[in-house]
Amino acid sequence: MSKKQHTIKDIARLAGVSKGTVDRVLHKRGKVSQKAHDKVKKVLSEIDYQPNPIARNLKRNKLYRICVLMPDWKIDPYWKPAELGIKEAIKEFKPFGVIVDQFLYHPHYVESFTTKSKEILASKPDVILMAPLFQEESISILKECREAKIWAALFNNYINTLNGEIFVGQDLIQSGKVAAGLVDKIVKNDSKIAVVHINKEAHMELKEDGFKSFFKEKNNSSHQILCENFNTEEEEEFDEQVSIFLKKNEDLKAIFITNSKAHRIADLVANIKGFEQMVIIGYDLLDENISYLKQGKIEFLIHQKPKRQAYLSINYFAEHFLFGKDVPSRMLLPIDIITSENVGYYLE
């Protein structure tokens, strides 16, 4: 038989039954005689019938709602690409009944995070997609989602106590190991190396753990590793604290910054004599980071692909609702190493 797109009317004619009978067989509802059922199934097999879930979804006027809870990109520019990924997904899936609503919270204030999360929970969406900066509060939200039977997923930041929730992002421990491997290839043995957290969040500790584990697992490694935390809320205080740390550690050979603020360290290092050969490794393609990368003041950037993370997170659920595809429980994106030579290929 022809491979054309057959309608219910076509199937009914070929099977010699009514359209209502075909509809009941296709959607497994209502009573159908065994004889009629077999006739319809035989025709479906012969024409290799594939249902069109998008058309069915539109016909039923069924809407699916995904709420995204993420930091405000106007406050922290790291999240701007994630915003673009969400906009791309909205444009692609809104015509098919998948609605995406955004709830932006202040990345420095837990109260903002909890307020926005309560708004989402009260609206009872199908999915909460969350970039969790505050671990304890995020765990509480995930618990409420399970109790309310709301599907929960995380992107970008991993939580160690996940209990069946979906995660889209990078393996943060492996990411730290990659950074350590880069440092190890550049600096001499017995060097002093710093792991620096700026505005420390729980997920950064996983990068630190990976960084340290690389050297623990490596034979004949004798680097001295320091760990420091700095906060940018007070601009002058931040600059002073970092400057004091650098002057106390004049023999420091490399710094690994665990988030997108490597440019803040690079800016200070550039103004302190004796650190011209300092190796700086950080994350993310912010304009400031790219500028220092091209100047040779940042050696490497690790690309976390926030746009891709946000888009894929929505895409997986949209394809589940529309096509019945399985949602992967864990989707880990590749860890890309960006240099001044290849950065141009990653810029849109």
Score class of each variant (00 low, 15 high):
3 K>F: 00
6 H>P: 03
6 H>Y: 15
13 R>M: 06
14 L>E: 04
15 A>V: 04
17 V>E: 01
19 K>E: 14
23 D>M: 01
24 R>V: 13
25 V>S: 09
25 V>A: 07
33 S>E: 02
35 K>L: 13
35 K>N: 15
37 H>A: 00
40 V>T: 11
43 V>N: 06
49 Y>H: 07
50 Q>V: 14
50 Q>N: 09
50 Q>D: 02
56 R>H: 09
63 L>P: 03
68 V>P: 08
70 M>Y: 01
72 D>S: 13
72 D>H: 11
74 K>H: 15
76 D>P: 08
79 W>P: 14
80 K>P: 01
81 P>R: 06
82 A>I: 06
86 I>R: 08
87 K>S: 10
87 K>D: 07
89 A>P: 12
91 K>P: 05
93 F>I: 08
97 G>C: 08
97 G>Q: 06
103 F>M: 13
104 L>M: 06
106 H>G: 08
110 V>E: 07
113 F>N: 07
114 T>P: 03
115 T>K: 15
115 T>E: 11
116 K>I: 02
121 L>Q: 11
130 M>V: 14
132 P>M: 00
133 L>E: 04
135 Q>C: 06
139 I>E: 11
140 S>A: 14
143 K>C: 05
143 K>V: 12
155 F>N: 09
157 N>C: 12
157 N>R: 15
161 T>F: 03
166 I>Q: 09
167 F>L: 03
167 F>S: 02
168 V>Q: 03
171 D>Y: 02
174 Q>T: 08
176 G>W: 00
181 G>V: 08
185 K>T: 14
186 I>T: 13
189 N>Q: 13
194 A>G: 07
198 I>C: 10
199 N>F: 01
200 K>A: 14
201 E>D: 03
207 K>H: 06
209 D>E: 14
213 S>P: 05
223 H>A: 05
229 N>P: 03
230 F>Y: 09
235 E>I: 14
235 E>Y: 07
242 V>P: 03
245 F>E: 10
248 K>C: 09
249 N>H: 15
249 N>S: 12
253 K>D: 03
253 K>V: 09
254 A>I: 10
254 A>E: 04
254 A>N: 11
255 I>T: 08
256 F>G: 09
265 I>V: 13
276 E>R: 08
281 I>N: 07
283 Y>M: 13
284 D>H: 05
289 N>D: 09
294 K>N: 10
298 I>H: 02
303 H>I: 00
306 P>N: 10
309 Q>M: 07
312 L>M: 15
313 S>Y: 02
315 N>M: 13
315 N>K: 15
317 F>D: 02
319 E>L: 04
321 F>H: 06
322 L>D: 01
324 G>R: 14
326 D>R: 15
326 D>K: 15
328 P>W: 01
328 P>F: 02
332 L>N: 12
335 I>F: 01
336 D>K: 12
339 T>W: 00
341 E>V: 04
346 Y>P: 07
347 L>M: 04
